[in-house]
Simulated assay, not measured.
Amino acid sequence: MELSKGTKVAIWAGSICLFHVIGMLVFRAFIYADMYIAPEDAYGISDLIELLIGAVFLVFFDGIYFIIFHI
């Protein structure tokens, strides 16, 4: 059985997204809690890192959506 190009892209993209979500969860569970937040600050560097990770995920996922449904 041969897979079409779109199916291969979808499988590849799904696995990358899955690993990214797992990475985000690992960061949140094991690293985020140990990072320092100053008492007077509303957010710390860990919140900025989490925002960056989430933004990368959204940009990547949007790019994959465009590739799958517009090619």
Rank of each mutant, 00 (worst) to 15 (best):
Y65S: 06
A13V: 08
Y36K: 07
A33N: 13
A33L: 09
L52C: 07
R28H: 15
D47P: 03
I11W: 04
D47Q: 13
L51E: 03
S15T: 14
G14H: 11
M24H: 10
Y36W: 12
P39F: 13
D34T: 08
I53T: 01
G14R: 14
F66L: 06
F69D: 04
D62H: 09
G23H: 02
E50W: 12
F27M: 08
A13I: 00
V26Y: 12
F57I: 00
I67C: 02
F61G: 00
D47F: 07
L48I: 10
G14C: 08
G6W: 04
E50R: 12
L51K: 03
V9W: 01
T7Q: 15
G54H: 07
Y65N: 07
V9F: 11
A29N: 14
V26I: 12
L51I: 11
D41C: 01
I49H: 01
G44K: 07
F27V: 08
A42L: 08
I16N: 02
I68Q: 01
K5P: 06
M24V: 06
D41M: 11
A10K: 09
I11N: 09
H70E: 15
I16L: 13
F30S: 11
V9M: 08
S46W: 03
Y43N: 05
L48H: 01
E40F: 12
V21R: 13
D41Y: 04
L52H: 01
S4T: 15
E40Q: 14
E40N: 13
I49Q: 05
V21Q: 07
H70W: 01
I31D: 07
M1K: 13
V26R: 09
V59M: 09
D62Q: 00
P39V: 11
M1Q: 02
E2S: 14
L18I: 14
A13G: 15
A42G: 15
R28W: 12
I53M: 14
I31R: 00
I67W: 07
D47E: 15
S15Y: 04
F27G: 04
I71L: 10
D41T: 09
I53F: 07
L51Q: 03
G14Q: 13
K5S: 15
I16S: 03
K5C: 11
V59T: 13
W12M: 06
I71N: 14
I11R: 07
I16C: 06
I68L: 15
I16D: 00
I53L: 13
F19I: 06
A38L: 11
L52Y: 06
V26H: 05
F60G: 05
F61T: 10
H70C: 00
F61P: 00
V56K: 00
G54Y: 00
S15E: 04
L18E: 10
H20K: 13
W12I: 04
F27I: 10
F61W: 04
I53E: 10
L52K: 01
A42F: 09
L18Q: 06
M24Y: 06
T7R: 10
S46R: 10
L48P: 02
E40I: 12
F60P: 00
I68F: 02
D47T: 04
I49G: 02
Y36A: 04
G6V: 03
L58A: 15
V56L: 12
F30P: 04
W12A: 13
I49F: 14
D47N: 05
C17K: 05
I68T: 02
R28I: 09
